Simulated assay, not measured.
Amino acid sequence: MFGGTILLVDDEKEIIDLLEIYLKNEGYKLLKASNGAEALELLTIHEVDLIILDIMMPQMDGIQACMKIREEKQMPIIMLSAKTQEIDKITGLSLGADDYVTKPFSPLEMIARVKSQLRRYRQLNVSRVKNDNEIVIDDLLINVATHKVSVDQNEVRLTPREFAILEVLARNRGIVLSMEQIYEEVWNDPFLESNNTLMVHIRKIREKIEKDPSSPQIIKTVWGIGYVIE
Rank of each mutant, 00 (worst) to 15 (best):
S116Q: 13
G174E: 04
Q59F: 05
K73C: 04
E71Q: 09
M60H: 04
W187T: 05
P76V: 05
I78N: 00
V200W: 12
V9P: 01
V144A: 03
Y183E: 09
I111G: 15
E207Y: 06
Y28H: 07
D11F: 01
K204L: 15
H46V: 15
L158S: 00
D152L: 13
L8C: 10
E210T: 09
N143M: 00
Q123P: 08
N188F: 02
I51V: 10
I182E: 08
L93P: 06
I182H: 07
D54F: 00
D189W: 13
P216M: 03
I51M: 12
M110C: 00
I142V: 02
L80T: 01
Y183K: 06
T84P: 14
I182D: 09
Y121W: 07
Q153S: 09
D88C: 08
V101A: 00
D11H: 01
I182M: 10
G224F: 01
Q117T: 11
R203E: 07
L118F: 09
H201S: 07
I202A: 03
E41Y: 11
G36N: 05
L53D: 00
Y100T: 08
T197W: 04
M56F: 11
K32N: 13
E230H: 07
Y100Q: 13
K32L: 13
R161C: 12
D132T: 11
I90K: 12
T146P: 00
Q74H: 12
Q74T: 10
R161N: 12
T146H: 01
D61M: 00
M79A: 04
D189Q: 12
A170N: 08
G92M: 08
C66Y: 01
D212L: 09
P216Q: 04
A112N: 11
N25S: 15
I165C: 06
M67Y: 07
M110H: 01
E72I: 06
I165L: 14
I175K: 03
I182C: 08
E109T: 04
M1N: 10
L31Q: 09
V144F: 02
K148H: 02
S116A: 13
T84I: 12
I6D: 02
D99Q: 14
L158R: 01
M1Q: 10
